[in-house]
Deep mutational scan, measured.
Amino acid sequence: GEEMDTAEIARQVKEQLIKHNIGQRIFGHYVLGLSQGSVSEILARPKPWNKLTVRGKEPFHKMKQFLSDEQNILALRSIQGR
């Protein structure tokens, strides 16, 4: 696969979550399948791509996919709003 700019992906995700008022817990649960603790760690201190294991890269693939389609963001927003 291609190398990803993990810091940039994390920054964009944080931006979207704040902009749409989506909590990290909801994002972690529905998008990444991770706990809030793992999510906040990944978003606060993303490791460089070449330092990640295959498993460590997974959340970034999912985040990139999440960012690529605004429908994903809107869907999360409606879950959050319940």
Results as ranks from 00 to 15, higher is better:
1 G>F: 09
1 G>Q: 11
2 E>C: 08
2 E>Y: 08
3 E>G: 08
4 M>R: 03
4 M>T: 07
4 M>V: 09
4 M>G: 03
5 D>S: 10
6 T>R: 01
7 A>V: 09
7 A>F: 11
8 E>H: 08
8 E>G: 06
8 E>N: 07
9 I>H: 03
9 I>N: 03
9 I>T: 06
10 A>W: 02
10 A>P: 02
11 R>P: 02
13 V>L: 04
13 V>K: 03
13 V>N: 03
15 E>C: 15
15 E>W: 04
17 L>M: 04
17 L>W: 01
17 L>D: 02
17 L>R: 03
18 I>L: 12
18 I>F: 15
18 I>W: 09
18 I>C: 13
18 I>Y: 13
18 I>N: 13
19 K>G: 03
20 H>R: 04
20 H>D: 02
20 H>G: 03
20 H>F: 12
20 H>S: 04
21 N>E: 11
22 I>S: 01
24 Q>E: 14
24 Q>N: 11
24 Q>G: 04
25 R>H: 14
27 F>R: 01
27 F>A: 00
28 G>V: 04
28 G>Y: 05
28 G>D: 05
30 Y>M: 09
30 Y>D: 05
30 Y>R: 07
30 Y>F: 09
31 V>P: 00
31 V>M: 04
32 L>D: 02
32 L>T: 02
33 G>E: 05
34 L>D: 06
34 L>S: 05
34 L>P: 03
35 S>T: 12
36 Q>N: 11
36 Q>L: 13
36 Q>D: 14
37 G>L: 12
37 G>H: 13
37 G>M: 13
38 S>T: 13
39 V>I: 07
39 V>L: 09
40 S>W: 09
40 S>G: 11
41 E>S: 06
42 I>S: 02
42 I>R: 00
42 I>P: 01
43 L>T: 00
43 L>H: 00
44 A>Q: 14
45 R>P: 01
45 R>H: 15
47 K>R: 10
48 P>M: 06
48 P>T: 06
48 P>K: 04
49 W>L: 04
50 N>G: 09
50 N>A: 11
50 N>L: 04
51 K>F: 10
51 K>A: 13
52 L>F: 00
52 L>M: 05
53 T>Y: 01
53 T>E: 06
53 T>V: 02
53 T>N: 10
53 T>A: 05
54 V>H: 12
56 G>L: 10
57 K>G: 03
57 K>F: 02
57 K>M: 08
57 K>P: 02
58 E>Y: 08
58 E>T: 06
59 P>N: 15
59 P>H: 14
60 F>S: 01
60 F>P: 01
61 H>K: 13
61 H>G: 05
62 K>R: 09
62 K>L: 09
62 K>M: 07
62 K>E: 04
63 M>D: 00
63 M>V: 01
63 M>H: 00
64 K>V: 12
64 K>H: 07
65 Q>S: 11
65 Q>Y: 08
65 Q>K: 10
66 F>P: 02
66 F>R: 00
67 L>Y: 03
67 L>R: 00
67 L>W: 01
70 E>A: 12
71 Q>F: 07
72 N>E: 10
72 N>R: 08
72 N>M: 08
73 I>G: 04
74 L>F: 12
74 L>R: 11
74 L>C: 08
75 A>D: 15
75 A>K: 15
76 L>G: 01
76 L>S: 02
77 R>E: 13
77 R>D: 06
77 R>W: 05
77 R>A: 14
77 R>C: 12
78 S>W: 07
79 I>S: 07
79 I>F: 10
79 I>W: 10
79 I>N: 09
79 I>Q: 13
79 I>G: 07
79 I>L: 14
80 Q>T: 10
80 Q>R: 07
81 G>I: 13
81 G>H: 14
82 R>I: 10
82 R>P: 15
82 R>S: 13
